[in-house]
Write a protein that binds this DNA or RNA. Structure first.
Lengths: 340, 340
DNA sequence: CAGACTGCATGAAACGATTCAGAAGAGGGT
DNA sequence: ACCCTCTTCTGAATCGTTTCATGCAGTCTG
């Protein structure tokens, strides 16, 4: 049972502590015969390294943490998968922590991670990210990379996706399909993504020159049912004022809109076209396959992890970088040119 | 920068090591005045406990790991959320590891977790769960709880959901709605869940007495596109042989079926009724809201974590338990009684 | 053959927290 | 004065690993 230490391995193999350690960490410094004896002893005793002792000595662990707003959100799960690839390649371990959009839980996680002397932290902070908690980590020499947040003038790396561009792409596409009355559904606008996507759409309309209208139908959350409610309201408009297309701040809203419109006998895309955002797995599997703006989610995770590892290795000489990815529009049927 | 140790705190406050430790761990053993001086020193130096040293001394960590087959699967994310609640309440930390259905990665994770001397492991193992890796953990005194796997005669606790019952509930419901030709879509049957759900459905049909048919349309995966393909094939049957209802091994398949049938002009539920399994978030938001068998996913996670903590505390005297939860059928519109 | 070098093995010191036997001092009782 | 008890504080020992100065043979060089 339990707890065979390096010392017992040494005794068993008839060598000293240091030699066993060398076999483990610099095998080629040890004569083959000796090495084999040690390896046999290890196998026989079922010895397993004690990482706590290692870390204590090393001053830090080899694990990297990612703190996400919601483990169940497909956006984050894909980011996690991306980060995982890079971290594991580097022989480290990725642990996933869930803040659940709760500042207190976020703080508690960060405290525990700090106690564990993690090698670095990837985080999408609750709120905008000017947290003093993050500041503290940084001061303590623990690298932090912001995910899907602009760090502004801040003192850490960040990876994000250009949401303004995403909004523009969606709007340009709708304009090309001939739409001139478009609604933007989403909210709250306190979420940077929601505001940016709208700003992009508005900019595209302005650049287009033609007269045209971008009506904003704010929602209180980014959920399917919020989408349904918003759609129900749009439908009450007189036909001549009713938007011929809607651009939704995310796919959940878009799915809600699709569902509500269909229920009320409006055809998508012939009566109302829809473009969503995020390209979640179900976007393509909806009753009418949904056009959507896709973000390079795994890529985001991979890059974030790379930046972190880089910073962890170079240390003080590190120069912070801010990587911004470009989203792409995936055109499916919900935004086909209406047949009239 | 970095690394204020307990020793420096002691010097700063003019007390000994042991006193600082007491302030941290048994504050009431220390005179209030002294305690305050120590706390001030801690605040001033920005001291943070070093968990590695703590663990080294204690012999084990306070983190609990959960190893899941797929971080992106809504089933597991809910289980994680449930486990989180319990683990955090107990003042421990939950780390999520992703095996991605890959035995090698699973093994690597377990090795690292063992090196870290985690307090316990919740796991849905790749395959059936007779792994020697798990055996090793157990021998080393690290409690293991199987999630969504029957441990058979095995030497650890387990939590699971009765999939046979779930299959029965779905089938009984369809029989009640008057269906006599039903298809079961799902696969591969090597997945215990797929086989059990079918077994339950078959049992319900047999118990019903009446003649009736349960046709099996095996799929190679449990995805939306697999569902579409299977549905496309069903549609080619002569109307008199075509099933009037399908029971799908999970919701993704069900959504695929719904989509394909709709595309081909068949009405759900009037021409074909559908019952899915898992009750994922999108089940209720589908074009036709989907009837589905719901598993108590968070509950599963909570209970698993409770069993684990219990075992970690009681130690050798622990008696393993196997908890089986009952699923429930959520009836929506995809299985409404057909109007004819 | 002295001196330099190489290859291999050694074991004490350090990392930082916890624990525990016991010292020091205060107060009470006789 | 003496013995007890109680509270409060002390500091050495300990956990398991890594590192590094050191030692010991043997080999090569001139």
């Amino acid at each position: 049972m339990s707890a065979a230490s390096i010392k017992e391995v040494a005794r068993h193999a008839g060598v000293s502590l240091g030699t066993v350690s060398n076999v483990l960490n610099r095998p080629n410094r040890v004569a083959p015969a000796t090495r084999q004896r040690v390896l046999d002893a290890i196998a026989e005793l079922g010895y397993v390294r004690n990482d706590s002792a290692r870390q204590l000595r090393a001053g830090h662990s080899r694990t990297i943490a990612i703190v996400v707003l919601d483990v169940a959100n497909p956006f984050f799960t894909d980011v996690v998968r991306g980060a995982e690839q890079v971290v594991e390649e580097a022989g480290a371990m990725l642990v996933v922590c869930n803040s659940g959009e709760d500042r207190a839980r976020e703080r508690r996680h960060l405290e525990l991670l700090e106690e564990q002397r993690v090698r670095g932290v990837l985080i999408t902070p609750v709120g905008h990210g000017g947290q003093p908690d993050l500041e503290r980590l940084h001061n303590r020499g623990i690298p932090v990379v912001l995910v899907d947040r602009e760090s502004g003038r801040a003192n850490c790396c960040s990876v994000a996706v250009d949401d303004v561009l995403g909004g523009r792409l969606a709007m340009e596409h709708l304009l090309e399909q001939g739409h001139r009355r478009v609604a933007y559904l989403g909210g709250p606008f306190s979420i940077p993504q929601v505001a940016d996507r709208h700003a992009g759409a508005a900019a595209a309309l302005a650049a287009h020159g033609d007269t045209g209208e971008l009506r904003v139908a704010p929602t209180d959350t980014l959920t399917v049912s919020a989408g349904r409610r918003a759609a129900a309201e749009l439908v009450t408009l007189p036909v001549r004022q009713r938007p011929t297309a809607v651009f939704c701040a995310n796919d959940l809203i878009a799915l809600g809109v699709l569902q509500e419109l269909t229920t009320r006998g409006l055809r998508v895309p012939d009566d109302v076209a829809i473009v969503g955002y995020d390209d979640i797995e179900f976007a393509g599997a909806a009753a009418v396959p949904l056009s959507s703006v896709r973000q390079p989610r795994e890529q985001l995770g991979r890059t974030a992890a790379q930046l972190l590892l880089e910073e962890a290795e170079t240390g003080a000489t590190h120069r912070h970088r801010h990587v911004v990815f470009q989203p792409e529009l995936v055109v499916r049927h919900s935004s086909d040119r209406p047949r009239r």
